[in-house]
């Protein structure tokens, strides 16, 4: 299993992601600098979280125009798998690899806490296919612009194509702030048309050790690796 983690100026979850992938695969992922045009064949490319280019203009906008994005698009067109976490999700959206938009959290607050995610019934994909539909994962978020927005027709299309992968859910009936950012229909993560690209706001690499408060992130990433290896 060969994995790679993309690094931009301002990425700050790259090391945590490398630690997580090394723990699961037993191999150190390669680091891919944002100026690289040529990247080797990899089983999984992860775009980690951070504040690339200082979040200038729009979150992920400048990173999405970096040379490495062309290589990532080529990897995707060859059927390759890509996971974008947090700022990585914002970059995938800005690069138009995933549709819609991530706007400011509805309460104008940077939110950093644990959330409960529910696996949705969606198309076959290497990220969730080993997990049960309706299964809940506790994974933390930490973002300011994670409010997923899609125009109505796009939302309808995403539902019809089974591309809504993860949603924030309540744990108790009276829980009010289960959705940390006000995203449309509590969306936390969406898939590409072929299911090989997942963008998600929560950080699985921040829940891989009991000292983190939970290991559901490890469960999620381990499942990805197992699904990809087949």
């Amino acid at each position: 299993m060969r994995t790679g983690v993309v690094i931009f100026p301002g990425s700050n979850c790259d090391r945590d992601m490398i630690v997580a992938l090394r723990k699961i695969t037993g191999k150190t992922p390669i680091k891919i600098w944002h100026k690289e045009y040529d990247i080797p064949n990899l089983d999984l490319i992860v775009i980690p979280g951070g504040f690339t280019f200082g979040d200038y203009l729009r979150c992920g906008a400048l990173a999405a125009r970096s040379p490495v994005i062309t290589s990532i698009k080529n990897h995707i067109s060859r059927g390759g798998t890509v996971l974008g976490v947090c700022n990585g999700f914002q970059i995938l959206i800005e690069a138009k690899i995933l549709p819609g938009s991530l706007i400011r959290n509805n309460k104008l607050l940077f939110t950093c806490r644990e959330t409960t995610l529910e696996v949705q019934s969606c198309i076959k994909n290497p990220f969730l296919s080993g997990l049960k539909i309706g299964e809940c994962l506790k994974i933390p978020v930490a973002h300011n612009e994670g409010n997923y927005f899609a125009p109505e027709d796009l939302l309808k299309q995403l539902k019809e194509e089974g591309r809504i992968a993860l949603k924030y859910v309540k744990q108790k009936d009276n829980e009010k702030n289960y959705n940390p950012n006000g995203s449309t229909e509590d969306i936390a993560g969406i898939l590409s048309k072929n299911g090989k690209v997942l963008g998600m706001m929560p950080h699985p690499e921040r829940a891989i050790n009991y000292l983190h408060g939970g290991t559901d992130g490890l469960k999620f990433l381990t499942n990805c690796v197992e699904q990809i290896i087949g």
Partner: peptide, 9 residues
């Protein structure tokens, strides 16, 4: 179209 504006929103 290419950078300055996110035409979705």
């Amino acid at each position: 179209e290419e950078l300055l504006v996110n035409t979705v929103i």
